[in-house]
Each structure stands twice: as structure tokens, then as C-alpha cells.
């Protein structure tokens, strides 16, 4: 017989997938609560999405269509390799189009296009504990979650205002889920926080190194923490996307030369491409077409 590598469907063995699905079900039942699970070694280093990959591997079926983004982009290393990984071990269809995907694994962005019922967004989470940097003891933070003692979270925001005159936290901005658990939305920019609120899609969070899974079921309240006199607000950009002219989307700054030249482009590459295909053009989009 020829020696071939025998992978189970979607890499993980069935018992592991059952274990992770049980954790996911529990997480969905208690929105925002961090469920411990027995994280497996994955063929990639920690910090590259081992938690997200395990969640995706446990929920993916042969009919699913997978999209993977890294900082909003479909074509960066992390996104390309995870997409290739599932194309190989699960032989699923992959896509870069948000609308076509049934599962979207993401590192630090939520797509600009509104997610719909039936879609699942899987987040890769480096540090699931929002209280970690204020209270390093895990025994204590668990107790604080259990007793709903979240005053400390506001101490962090207070410090921000005292130092910078405004809440300067721009990513991993803490949220309260369904009026109960305070949750770290993974290092997504706070621009994306409002998209989590009552989203039609199921949102799953996997932290591989930290062995935690948590979830926000569809139509769940997700409220960003703030002060009455310093309300939560998202980032605003002064210029539109240089390629597609989009406004009200999250933009990346791209340095063009060593003389201060820069441009702003959509962080969500699929959104930008779709707009350009539809005929929208930004300031620098014309040049690109001309070249």
C-alpha cells in the first residue's frame, strides 16, 4: 500500500471536535462567558490563530464556503495559509467574497458588509481575558466575572481619559454582552464594536494558547463600556478610501514614499474590490487604472 498521510476531515479527530462543539454550545448558551476547553496542538505557531482554526475545524462541513481574513485582507500570509489549510484538509470551497461565505475566520476585523443570518464569524483571540492587564491573577478575574465586579474595567478607561483627555483605547475595546459578562472582542478596532451589537450572524471566539472559547449568539446586545460624560465613539477618517472612494469604512494608512506621501485604503479588501468593480473610483484609483 502506498503510504499517504491520513487526515480526518478538517484535520481534528472526531472526539476533539465533539469536545470543542460542547464548549461552543456552552459558550453560546452563556453569551460572553469564557468556556475552558482542551486546546490541541495545531500545525501552526501560537499567535497565528490556533484557537480560531480549532473552532472552524469543529463547525465546518463539506458544504461550507470558507473565507479567511487577516486585518480585513484576504491576501495576507495568515489568511492565505489558513484558507489553503482548510482547502486541503476539508476540501471545502473557499471564497474571498463576504456574501458567499458561510464561515468567515477573522483576525482583527469584521467585514464591512453586514453579516446575515446563517453566517458564522470565527475570531482568532490572543488574550481572552479583558481584565488581565489590571488583575493578573486568573483566580481573581474568574471570581470578578462570577460576581459581576467590573469596576476595574472603568478604572482602565478612567486612566485613558486622565492621560489623553479621551478614551484612547482603539482596539480590544471592552464590551458588555447581554447585560452580564464583560468581554474582550479580540484586538478588532473599536470601529467594529457596533457591528457586533445584535448581529444576525453567530460570532465565535477561539483562544488556542489560553484554552478558552466564548461566543455571541445572533441578536445579542453588545454594548461598549464608557462614561456618561465620555461616551463611546468609533474612529473617524478624514479622507475616503484612495482606491474606491468609500467613506464610513475602516481605512489603513499606506506609506507611499520617504517624503511623507501616504494614502488611505479600505482595510476590507473584498469590500474595496467589489466597490471598484461596481465603478466607484477614489483619488488614486484612476492612476492605477491608467498605469
Amino acid at each position: 500500500m502506498k503510504a499517504v498521510a491520513n487526515y480526518n476531515f478538517a484535520y481534528l479527530d472526531e472526539q476533539t471536535k465533539r469536545m470543542i462543539r460542547r464548549a461552543i454550545l456552552k459558550a453560546v448558551a452563556i453569551p460572553g462567558y469564557q468556556v475552558p476547553f482542551s486546546s490541541r496542538e495545531m500545525p501552526m505557531p501560537y499567535g497565528w490563530g490556533t484557537g480560531g482554526v480549532q473552532v472552524t475545524a469543529s463547525i465546518i462541513g463539506p458544504d461550507d464556503v470558507l473565507k479567511v481574513i487577516d486585518q480585513g485582507a484576504d491576501d495576507t500570509t495568515n489568511a492565505v495559509s489558513i484558507r489553503a489549510f482548510f482547502a486541503k484538509v476539508a476540501r471545502v470551497a473557499t471564497t474571498t467574497h463576504t456574501a458567499e461565505a458561510t464561515i468567515i475566520q477573522t483576525r482583527h476585523r469584521i467585514p464591512e458588509r453586514k453579516l446575515e443570518a446563517g453566517q458564522i464569524l470565527v475570531y482568532q483571540v490572543p488574550i481572552p481575558e479583558p481584565l488581565r492587564f489590571l488583575e493578573p491573577r486568573e483566580t481573581e478575574t474568574r471570581k470578578m466575572h462570577a460576581l459581576e465586579e467590573y469596576g476595574l474595567m472603568h478604572v482602565k478607561l478612567y486612566e485613558d481619559i486622565a492621560r489623553h483627555g479621551r478614551i484612547a483605547t482603539t482596539y480590544a475595546y471592552p464590551v458588555k454582552v447581554e447585560g452580564r459578562y464583560v468581554m474582550d472582542p479580540s484586538p478588532t478596532p473599536k470601529f467594529d464594536n457596533p457591528k457586533m451589537h445584535r448581529s444576525e450572524a453567530l460570532q465565535l471566539f477561539g483562544a488556542g494558547r489560553e484554552h478558552r472559547i466564548y461566543a455571541v449568539p445572533p441578536h445579542t446586545d453588545v454594548v461598549s463600556l464608557d462614561f456618561e460624560d465620555h461616551p463611546f465613539e468609533i474612529q473617524h477618517f478624514e479622507e475616503p478610501c484612495a482606491l474606491c472612494g468609500a467613506e464610513g469604512v475602516y481605512l489603513d494608512e499606506v506609506i507611499l514614499d520617504d517624503r511623507g506621501g501616504h494614502m488611505y485604503v479600505c482595510s476590507d479588501t473584498d469590500h474595496c474590490e467589489e466597490r471598484r468593480d461596481a465603478g466607484f473610483v477614489g483619488v488614486l484609483g484612476m492612476q492605477e487604472a491608467a498605469e
Binding site: 465586579e149 469596576g151 476595574l152 472603568h154 478604572v155 478612567y158 481619559i161 464608557d226 462614561f227 456618561e228 460624560d229 465620555h230
Partner: peptide, 11 residues
């Protein structure tokens, strides 16, 4: 901190 712990949310 204690004020925030008992629910004061006005900076």
C-alpha cells in the same frame, strides 16, 4: 476605583 465599583459612570 471604589466609586466605579459601585456603579458611578460619570468621569
Amino acid at each position: 476605583e471604589r466609586l466605579m465599583a459601585v456603579g458611578d459612570r460619570h468621569y
